[in-house]
């Protein structure tokens, strides 16, 4: 259970596929327009429940509860060995053999 007052992430459908704008490409028209927003949970709830939150600017939003204390998981990704090749190549061209 997630307690009232915790910082959470919710998800809400803004437009169903049939409500989407006319100019949208076909693949996009097949899926809903979804919103994600964070705020403080207004009542105790379980993940998946439809909940109310108050956002950082004091707005009320409703949606399905996804995560408490939502965490940033972006990173520097997996190592890309090709980048080493580039660095070595330009140093070699500019400074010659020993500068690696």
């Amino acid at each position: 259970m997630i307690k009232k007052g915790e910082w959470v992430l919710i998800r809400k459908t803004i437009l169903e596929p049939h409500e989407r704008a006319p100019q949208v490409p076909d693949d996009t028209k097949k899926v809903p327009l979804i919103m994600w927003v964070k705020g403080r949970l207004q009542a105790d709830a379980q993940i998946g429940d439809i909940v109310e939150i108050i956002t950082q600017t004091g707005r009320v939003e409703q949606g399905a509860l996804l995560e408490a204390n939502p965490t940033y998981r972006h990173s520097f990704g997996e190592f890309i060995p090709e980048l080493l090749v580039i660095g070595d190549q330009v140093r070699e061209i500019l400074f010659g053999g020993d500068a690696k």
Partner: peptide, 23 residues
Amino acid sequence: ARKCEALGAEVVQLSVGPELFYK
């Protein structure tokens, strides 16, 4: 989004589509 939130903003994230303008 992280940077905006770190600077105190509210971030409203949407899936792909020009209807962002609608929201």
